[in-house]
């Protein structure tokens, strides 16, 4: 019998709605299975934990062939907002919460959330810019330390 997974470290590196959700779902799913979960937000993924931005993440309608939408159409004003609304509606139907509620849920479930220090410095962010569920701003080295024994998943 292969060893069951005990711990995962999930990196969220993108800031679009569809870029953020897979990592959140994986983290929550891990906690539901009794697996330890650490989330590390880096680059534009930080938008998911920035207090002022996390409620306004959008679906990218350009540069995504799986949207099956011509690039120029996807670039029209309002298109991204429309796609976001549609996706949020579908997610609500199957009980996937909005980003802020999802972050709270993962935090309350014992998942840990960290912001990447390099990105925080690059974007001139402060600790007070983040939602209160964030456990800290850590370096990549610290991320690897915290990930000891974990499977690392990059999204």
């Amino acid at each position: 019998m292969p060893e069951p997974i005990e711990k995962v470290s999930i990196i969220i590196s993108r800031g679009s709605l569809e870029g953020v959700y897979p990592g959140l779902l994986m983290a929550n799913g891990a906690r539901m299975e009794g697996i330890e979960a650490t989330l590390f937000f880096t680059f534009f993924g930080l938008d998911a934990i920035i207090d002022k931005r996390m409620d306004h993440l959008k679906v990218a309608t350009v540069g995504n062939p799986a949207m099956h939408m011509p690039t120029l159409l996807g670039a029209l004003p309002g298109m991204s907002a429309f796609a976001t609304k549609m996706m949020s509606k579908e997610m609500e139907k199957i009980d996937i919460p909005p980003v802020r509620e999802f972050i709270e849920m993962i935090h309350d479930a014992g998942g840990e959330l960290y912001a990447c220090k390099a990105t925080v410095d690059m974007f001139h962010l402060k600790e007070s810019d983040f939602c209160k569920q964030v456990d800290g701003i850590i370096s990549i080295g610290e991320f690897y330390e915290k990930s000891a024994g974990a499977q690392i998943i990059f999204t």
């Binding site: 906690r31 539901m32 299975e33 009794g34 709270e104 849920m105 309350d108 479930a109 014992g110």
Partner: peptide, 15 residues
């Protein structure tokens, strides 16, 4: 709530 649920049924609460 979520916190209590995880405390009541530790390690894989839903299952």
């Amino acid at each position: 709530n979520t916190k209590e649920f995880y405390q009541l049924f530790p390690k894989g609460p839903v299952k």
